[in-house]
Computed example of a mutant assay.
Amino acid sequence: MVNLYWPVYKSIEHEIAELSSKIHFDDEQLSVYSVKISELLIRCAVEIESISKDLYFKNGGQKANDKDLFFDTDCLEFLEHRWLLSKKKVIVSAPDFYFINDENRILTPLKKANKRGSSGADWAKAYQAVKHNRSQDLKRGNIKNLLRATAALFLLNLYYRDDVFDLLNIKHDNFSHRFSNLFSVKVHEFKGDTV
């Protein structure tokens, strides 16, 4: 199967890295917003919608692929039950991002992503706001929401890639730097045949 998602993710990641050379990414700058940040947020969310549907079907989802199949309440909900996506953490590890607060460094970007409306993830609410009323809600197209949406897309891409690793022969700290210049994930050490 051809992976159409990974090159798009890498392109978005590259654009965010370029943006960070113009804006100092730190805890104080998370509310910085712009049309460019909003555009990147929208592109991330569109990719999340599409990849979540592909993952849904790839992993046994049975609902018809029509206008009644929703990426959040159907696809991400199905994937939540399979993989506990809401518990998966992404570490912001770009060397030129200067976040100190754990809430900005260690993200759970798919927490509440399977919900809709006011119960949903903040990045998803921001996406809907800037998509439908950009002039009024431009402030929601900010660095904080962009990074969380991009982290969600990163995680879904890792699942889509479906790579297999021999964890006994790699360091048990952080190997995902092979995949992203912005994010890392931590691998939990396997301690034998414990059930």
Rank of each mutant, 00 (worst) to 15 (best):
Q62E: 15
D96W: 04
A152Q: 12
V92F: 12
K131Y: 03
A121N: 09
D122Y: 05
E49K: 07
K88V: 11
P109G: 09
A151F: 02
S31L: 13
N133F: 04
I37G: 04
K87A: 14
Q128P: 02
A45T: 03
W83P: 12
A126G: 01
L156A: 04
D68H: 13
V32I: 14
I42W: 01
E49H: 11
L30T: 11
W123Q: 03
L110Q: 05
K58E: 09
L85E: 04
F78K: 11
G60Y: 08
I42T: 08
G120M: 12
D72L: 06
E80I: 08
R134F: 10
A113N: 14
D72H: 06
E47W: 00
E49D: 15
K125G: 05
K63V: 14
L84R: 13
D122P: 06
E49F: 10
L107N: 03
H132E: 04
Y127R: 12
L110S: 06
T108G: 09
A45R: 00
Q128K: 07
R43E: 03
K125I: 10
R105C: 13
I106L: 12
S86H: 15
N65P: 04
Y127H: 11
D68P: 01
K131Q: 09
K88M: 12
S93N: 05
A64V: 14
N65F: 09
Y56Q: 01
T73Q: 13
S86E: 15
N133V: 02
Q128C: 02
Q29R: 08
N104K: 12
C44G: 05
A121K: 03
L69T: 07
D72P: 00
S118P: 15
D54F: 00
R82Q: 14
E28I: 07
K58I: 08
D68I: 01
S93P: 00
P109L: 10
K115W: 10
D72G: 05
W123P: 03
F99E: 13
Y33N: 13
N101A: 14
K88H: 09
D54S: 03
S34A: 06
V90K: 00
F57G: 02
I106D: 11
K89S: 15
L30P: 03
P109C: 10
K89R: 15
R43S: 08
E77A: 09
P95D: 15
S86R: 15
A129Q: 11
G117V: 11
T73A: 11
I48W: 00
K36G: 07
D54R: 01
K139I: 09
D68T: 11
S119C: 14
L155E: 01
K125L: 09
L153Y: 14
D137H: 10
E80P: 06
L147D: 04
D68G: 07
S135D: 07
G60D: 08
D72M: 05
Y98R: 12
S34W: 06
S119Q: 15
S38H: 02
K63F: 13
R105S: 14
L41R: 01
L84F: 11
C44D: 08
A94D: 15
N59G: 02
L155H: 00
L107I: 09
G117C: 14
P95F: 03
